[in-house]
Amino acid sequence: TFVEFNGKKVEYPTPEAAEKAAKKLAKKLNLKVTKKNGNYKLE
């Protein structure tokens, strides 16, 4: 499962880990999380 932000793509071993990381990053970077095709994107 990938988390995409600032043009970077980071892969996580589980969807749970990706979701957790996405939410944490979104909060830190003041972005919102969108889920697309099972992957997460911060914008």
Rank of each mutant, 00 (worst) to 15 (best):
L25Y: 05
P15F: 05
A17S: 10
T14C: 05
L25M: 09
E16H: 10
L29C: 10
P13A: 12
E11D: 06
G38K: 05
K23T: 13
F2D: 02
V33S: 02
T1I: 13
L31I: 05
L31F: 03
N37C: 06
A21E: 06
K24N: 12
E4M: 08
N30Y: 06
P15Y: 05
T1C: 10
K23A: 12
N30H: 13
E43D: 08
K35F: 15
K41D: 04
K24L: 14
K35E: 12
K28F: 10
E4V: 08
K27Y: 10
K32Q: 09
V33Y: 07
N39S: 12
N37G: 11
A22C: 01
T34D: 05
F5S: 02
L42C: 03
K23L: 14
E43N: 06
K9W: 12
K23Q: 13
L31S: 03
K8E: 09
Y12P: 00
N6I: 06
G7A: 05
K9A: 10
K36T: 14
F2S: 07
K23C: 14
A26L: 02
A18E: 00
L29F: 15
N37Q: 08
V10W: 15
K20I: 12
A17N: 04
P15D: 12
K27F: 10
E19K: 11
A21V: 08
A21K: 02
G7S: 05
V3D: 00
F5T: 02
K20R: 14
F5P: 00
A22W: 02
E16V: 08
K27Q: 13
G7R: 05
A26N: 02
L42M: 04
N6W: 13
L29W: 14
P15H: 10
K24V: 12
N30D: 07
K27N: 11
P13L: 08
K27T: 10
T34V: 14
Y40A: 02
L31M: 13
K23G: 08
K9F: 14
E4A: 05
L31T: 03
K41E: 12
V33W: 07
P13F: 07
A22M: 04
A21T: 04
K24W: 15
V3G: 00
P15I: 09
G38I: 01
K20S: 11
F2A: 05
T14N: 10
K28C: 12
K20A: 13
A21P: 00
K32E: 06
A21H: 05
V33E: 02
E19A: 10
A21I: 06
T34R: 06
A17H: 07
K36G: 08
G38M: 04
T34F: 09
F2Y: 13
V10K: 13
L29E: 04
N37T: 04
K32D: 04
Y40S: 01
T1D: 02
A22I: 07
P13H: 09
L42W: 01
E11I: 14
T34N: 07
N30F: 07
V3E: 01
T1E: 03
K36E: 15
T14E: 04
F5Y: 13
N6M: 14
K32F: 08
K27H: 11
N39V: 15
F2C: 08
E19V: 06
Y40C: 03
N30Q: 10
A21Q: 05
T34P: 00
P15Q: 12
A17L: 13
T1N: 12
A26C: 05
V10L: 12
P13S: 11
N6C: 13
K23N: 13
Y40H: 03
E43G: 06
N6G: 10
T14D: 07
T34K: 06
K32S: 09
N37L: 07
L25C: 09
A18G: 04
K8R: 13
L29T: 04
E11H: 14
K8L: 13
G7L: 03
A26R: 02
F2Q: 05
K36H: 15
K36F: 15
K27L: 13
N30C: 06
K27E: 12
P15S: 10
T34I: 14
P15T: 09
V3S: 01
E4L: 08
N37A: 08
K36Y: 15
N37W: 05
L31W: 03
P15M: 11
E43Q: 09
N30V: 04
E11V: 14
F5C: 05
A17M: 12
E16F: 08
Y40M: 04
K41Q: 14
N30L: 06
K32G: 05
A22D: 00
L25D: 01
K27G: 08
E11M: 15
K24S: 13
E43A: 07
F5M: 06
K27A: 13
K36D: 14
A18L: 01
F2V: 09
L42F: 04
L42T: 02
N6D: 09
A17E: 13
V33A: 04
A26K: 02
E4F: 10
T14V: 03
K36P: 06
Y12T: 00
E16D: 09
K27M: 11
G7C: 08
E11L: 15
T14S: 11
F2E: 04
L42K: 02
T34A: 07
K23F: 15
E43F: 12
K32I: 14
Y12I: 01
K8Y: 14
Y12W: 05
K36V: 15
G7P: 00
L29K: 05
K27W: 09
Y40R: 02
K23W: 14
N6P: 03
T34E: 08
K24I: 14
K20N: 11
T14I: 03
P13G: 09
V10Q: 09
K20W: 11
K35S: 09
A26M: 04
K41G: 05
K36N: 14
N6F: 14
K23D: 08
F2P: 00
K36W: 13
A26Y: 01
A18R: 00
L31P: 00
Y12N: 00
K20V: 10
K8D: 06
T1F: 15
K8P: 01
K9V: 13
P15L: 08
E43V: 14
T14R: 03
K36L: 15
A26T: 02
K36S: 14
E19Q: 09
N39E: 08
N6V: 05
L25N: 02
V10Y: 14
K8G: 07
N30E: 06
K36A: 14
N37I: 03
Y40T: 02
E19S: 08
L25K: 04
N37E: 11
A18M: 00
E16G: 09
E43M: 09
N37Y: 06
E19M: 10
N39Q: 08
N30G: 15
E16K: 10
L29V: 03
K35D: 06
E19C: 08
L29N: 06
E4Y: 11
T34H: 08
N30W: 05
A17F: 05
V33M: 09
K28L: 14
K20E: 13
V10E: 07
Y40N: 02
A22G: 02
A21M: 07
V10T: 12
K28R: 13
F5K: 01
Y12D: 00
T34G: 04
K36R: 11
K27C: 12
V10F: 14
T1W: 15
L29H: 13
A22H: 00
F2T: 11
K28I: 12
N6A: 11
E11G: 10
K20H: 12
Y40E: 01
L31C: 06
E43T: 12
K35W: 13
K41I: 15
E4W: 08
P13Y: 07
K41L: 15
K8M: 13
E19R: 11
N30I: 04
K32N: 08
K41R: 12
G7T: 04
K24E: 15
F2H: 06
L42P: 02
N6T: 03
K23M: 15
K24Y: 15
K23V: 13
L29R: 05
K20D: 10
K24A: 15
A22E: 00
P13R: 10
L29A: 04
K23P: 00
T1H: 13
V3Q: 00
K24G: 10
G38F: 04
T14P: 07
A22T: 03
N39R: 06
K9T: 11
A17C: 08
F5R: 02
P13T: 09
L29P: 02
E11T: 13
A18Q: 01
A26W: 01
E43P: 01
F2L: 08
E11N: 11
G38H: 05
K8N: 12
N37D: 15
V33P: 02
P15C: 05
F2I: 11
K9L: 12
E11Y: 15
N37K: 06
A17P: 01
N6H: 12
V3T: 01
E11C: 12
T14F: 04
G38S: 05
N6S: 07
N6Q: 10
K27R: 11
N37M: 07
E4R: 03
K41C: 11
T1S: 12
V10D: 05
N39T: 12
K8H: 14
G38D: 06
Y12R: 00
N39Y: 12
K8F: 14
V3K: 00
V33R: 01
K9C: 08
K28W: 11
A21G: 04
P15R: 12
K9Q: 11
E43S: 10
V3L: 07
K24H: 13
N30K: 11
E16N: 08
Y40L: 08
A21L: 03
